[in-house]
């Protein structure tokens, strides 16, 4: 028509690069939830239902004898997901192992996104360049280090005593059965009384010092001379002050050996080993962003958690001694009797 012919000619189209396909629009990359996603969800639900039905038909949930507070099983163990805490309790102060460190772990998990503020590299598995190998190294490191520490701290009480055999034994007084005073070089007391790790020192102020690791500098003995240090102003003249179980200066003493063995040494070991692996990976250039640091810490923490769970589940026998899984005796005091019982 005439009107159309009067229009100015359209500007020539820009040449299109033939090799470059048009980027797909957002909407074209999307699928409908029904049926594409609902189908996947339905199939996985059906598969899991079938699997657990079959599992439940063939494997029964355990039911032992009726609860009896007079019969303590040896060892008694927590539910499997808390066994790591129970394992940790053997190696350090119970408040730290049982309460503070788990809360710190959950707290660390919760603040991860507030530490790692970058929003890049999300939505793909192992987004940064080295993250997969960082995760692998951190996992292996945590497993090896955790096992090493468990074996080291367990010392003579287990079948794994070679972990500490390079430390000489202390000279014992034949008459009293107690270790001789003034031991040098540093040595280990061989004892079978209770679970005593290598740096373990009793926080119980009654009785003789029970630390396994002993040494002397001049006439000063570790731990005998440092587990009963009076607080300053310990004369009780200003009166006793206490709230709940926070005690004031009521004639109490400071157990340096116990504090060191139960808190300072284990906690600084954890902190040092964490910083060490991050520093090493940083120096060789694998750890470059906060995200990478988070990967190291998250992977390491989870691997240590898992390793401690495995140690407590499969390697702890009566008295929480470290033994091989094959040596764990079945408890025959249950009904129905497990296989291998008369």
């Amino acid at each position: 028509m005439a009107v159309e012919t009067e229009r100015p000619a359209a500007p020539p189209e820009r040449p299109v690069a033939a090799a470059r396909p048009r980027p797909k629009r957002e909407r074209e990359e999307e699928l409908l939830v029904w049926p594409d996603l609902v189908f996947v969800e339905f199939i996985s639900a059906v598969l899991f239902t079938l699997t657990f039905m079959l599992l439940s038909v063939f494997i029964n949930a355990p039911l032992l004898n009726r609860a009896n507070t007079d019969i303590t099983p040896n060892p008694s163990k927590a539910p499997w997901y808390f066994l790591n805490l129970q394992e940790l309790l053997l190696h350090m102060d119970k408040a730290w192992a049982g309460v503070i460190l788990p809360i710190m772990f959950l707290g660390f998990l919760a603040v991860i996104p507030y530490l790692d503020r970058s929003s890049e590299k999300q939505g793909v598995w192992f987004g940064t360049k080295y993250s997969a190998r960082i995760a692998l190294v951190a996992a292996l490191y945590a497993i090896v280090v955790t096992w090493g520490l468990v074996l080291f701290d367990d010392g003579e009480r287990s079948k794994f005593e070679y972990a500490t055999r390079w430390i000489p034994s202390c000279d014992m007084n034949a008459e009293s059965g107690q270790p001789e005073a003034h031991q040098f070089p540093p040595c280990l007391v061989d004892t079978a009384a209770g679970h005593q790790g290598i740096v373990r020192a009793s926080v119980d102020l009654q009785g003789p010092p029970q630390g396994r690791f002993m040494f002397s500098v001049g006439s000063l003995d570790w731990p005998a001379d440092v587990d009963h240090i009076p607080w300053p102003f310990n004369d009780n003249k200003v009166g006793c002050w206490s709230f709940k179980n926070i005690h004031g200066w009521c004639g109490e003493h400071f157990n340096l050996a116990g504090t060191f063995a139960q808190q300072i040494f284990p906690l600084s070991t954890i902190a040092f080993l964490t910083v060490l692996i991050i520093y090493i990976l940083f120096r060789i250039g694998w750890v470059r962003t906060t995200r990478d640091v988070m990967i190291v810490m998250f992977t390491g923490a989870l691997s240590a958690y898992l390793t401690l769970t495995i140690v407590m589940s499969f390697f702890r026998g009566p008295g929480q001694d470290l033994i091989l899984p094959t040596d764990i005796k079945v408890d025959c005091g249950t009904l129905p009797s497990p296989p291998g019982c008369p």
Binding site: P62, L63, L64, N65, R66, A67, N68, T69, I71, T72, P73, S76, K77, A78, P79, F82, L85, Q86, L89, K94, A95, G98, V99, I100, K244, N245, I246, T334
Partner: peptide, 21 residues
């Protein structure tokens, strides 16, 4: 309320009791 239950919870009971303060 069997032996497995009560002693596992006893371990948890001990852990809860070790909370500082």
């Amino acid at each position: 309320w069997d032996q497995l239950a009560i002693w596992a919870i006893t371990v948890g009971h001990g852990i809860a009791g070790s909370a500082p303060y």
